[in-house]
Amino acid sequence: MRHVIIIGSGPAGYTAAIYAARANLEPLVIASSVEFGGELMKTTEVENFPGFPEGIMGPDLMTKMQQQAERFGAEIVYDDVVSLELEGPVKSVTLGNGDRHEAHAVIFATGSAYRKLGIADEERLSGYGVSWCATCDGAFFRQKTVAVVGGGDSAMEEATFLTRFADKVYVIHRSETLRASAAMQDRATNDPKIEFVFNKTVEHIYGSDLVTGVGLVDTVTGEESTLDVSGLFIAIGADPRTHLVHGVLDLTEHGTIAVDGRSSRTSVEGVFAAGDVVDPTYRQAITAAGSGTVAALDAQHYLEGLHDATRETAAAAV
């Protein structure tokens, strides 16, 4: 039986692991088989994580966090959780390889998953021009015309990154106001290869084997138009990854896991949540890391309470 199992290996999961390991809780981190390190594994330069004045590559930052957690005794397993039992004093976690692990406490830090447009042919052409990761796929669009859908920081980052390869990058956004930070907006709007297409939604993706274009609808006039592109990069946000705990943990109206005030305590005793899965608002690497700290300290406090209770019971029995 473990003290604590941490599910997730982004900034929240690894920071929780660093704190739990330093508190001698010997945490087991279930890091995922192919998405370990979380969303930052798909980014390039991270310029806003404190302590790295020259910036740091996302995957390098995550490797450092992993090494820091391991240095203090965290054990990391590269597999996926397929089922969970969270109620009762003993929590259990079953992995893709069939292994089952038990612990007194669980920290849930599964982050979020890219949102899809939800239109026909999106799935069929995924990997054939439709992509959610410019850093992974951008290089295949040398001297091509591509489009990015979205108006937030990640859309600006994808568009700016794509200008390294593509001749032309359209940014399609459903309104006229971008949600992206001023710095990211400025970089994109000043880029001669980037052209904004405002007040449009993507309703169709064309192409038999590979993407050849998109069909747009004007959100103001309803007018339809098409744009010839070889690639469509979707950056319209992400949804908290909560499918493992539906019906078990209370969720908020935003779909994130509900926690008690500024703590990480969920609706089930001994279960704590941290990172993007509890945060519909800020969703930054550093806020996730901070929230991982909170979860580790809450779990530590909970485990100490259990320990004291056991000792009192033992003393009463004597």
Binding site: S32, V34, D79, D80, S126, G127, Y128, D137, F140
Partner: peptide, 30 residues
């Protein structure tokens, strides 16, 4: 890469007798 129209990696293509018989795109659990 160009001949097989790779636009997303990892792309895994199964060949039999010189022909592509299956394509799997993206990292997935085992």
């Amino acid at each position: 890469a160009m001949k097989y129209q790779i636009t997303s990696i990892p792309a895994m293509k199964v060949f039999k007798g010189g022909e592509v018989v299956k394509t799997v795109i993206g990292a997935k659990p085992k």
